[in-house]
């Protein structure tokens, strides 16, 4: 299928573009340092004396919140700034192929950052006897969560003229989608007298709740479907926006 080939070409260019600048390496180091610091320093991984990755996965939504928008902010904004958008959109590719290619490239980049956290797994395996099924499930959940954040970032970049605005919008949307499922927020809202079923309904739309189950080692197709749904929705929104805005 020629579609897949076009997506692959866009993907390769975009993915390679990350590593054309030193920012990619700074990003990877920042990601690993942040995750490491939060896991070992803040949630006291060693002191807990438990051979599981709960304190590690706990931080992933918050790290993605900060770093995924940084990785995605340039995807469209940079094309607009340099004028290459005019080149890209007059080549014989469809907007869907371009969007999917860009999305997958950014997701793969975040995936690399996630994969580089493997020493945490090795540490845990060396110290104790962890449940590898649960760890794998946690990683899968984390990957899906990051994919949803990347899709939000692609959308934010599509509606933004500059990278900074793209970053802020992506951060705002991700933050909103996280905190509506964050326990302290849910409890506070429930405390205002909002009916429980409404609170639960809203919380079930959050990025957080679906990750919560997976980081504990529970795979539910409902959760996987949710993340895929968010990705498809955000990319569709980006498609509509780009189609309408490319003229300006």
């Amino acid at each position: 299928m020629s579609n897949v080939k076009q997506i692959k070409t866009i993907f390769q260019r975009e993915f390679k573009a990350y590593f054309d600048s030193p920012v990619a390496y700074v990003f990877l180091v920042a990601f690993l340092v942040l995750v490491g610091f939060l896991t070992f320093g803040v949630t006291m991984y060693y002191e807990r004396r438990q051979a599981n990755l709960t304190p590690f996965f706990f931080w992933h939504p918050w790290v993605y919140l900060l770093l995924v928008p940084a990785a995605t902010m340039g995807l469209w904004a940079e094309e607009r700034r340099t004028g290459t958008i005019e080149l890209l959109l007059t080549l014989p590719v469809t907007l869907v192929e371009t969007l999917v290619g860009k999305f997958l490239a950014a997701w793969a980049f975040i995936g690399i950052a996630l994969a580089l956290t493997f020493p945490v797994v090795l540490t845990t395996a060396w110290l104790g006897d962890p449940d590898f099924g649960a760890i794998l499930c946690g990683y899968l959940g984390s990957l899906l969560l990051s994919g949803a954040c990347v899709a939000v970032g692609v959308f934010a970049s599509a509606i933004s003229r500059s990278q900074v605005i793209g970053f802020v919008i992506a951060l705002a949307i991700c933050l909103f989608m996280l905190i509506i499922g964050f326990d302290p927020v849910i409890n506070a809202v429930a405390g205002w007298g909002v009916p429980a079923n409404i609170v639960n309904a809203v919380a079930s739309c959050s990025l957080m709740q679906h990750f919560d189950a997976m980081r504990r080692g529970v795979i539910d197709f409902y959760d996987i479907g949710y993340y895929i749904g968010v990705m498809v929705f955000m990319l569709s929104a980006a498609h509509v926006v780009t189609d309408n805005r490319k003229a300006s």
Partner: peptide
């Protein structure tokens, strides 16, 4: 679009790519 070659105003291109890489990318897309 397959039948057109287009040189936009200000000749935009991906500045971090080499000339050969850039043209190879365009060729693949084509």
């Amino acid at each position: 679009k397959r039948c057109i070659g287009y040189l936009p105003e200000n000749a935009p291109s991906y500045h971090t790519m080499t000339v050969t890489d850039f043209l190879t990318f365009i060729g693949k897309i084509r």
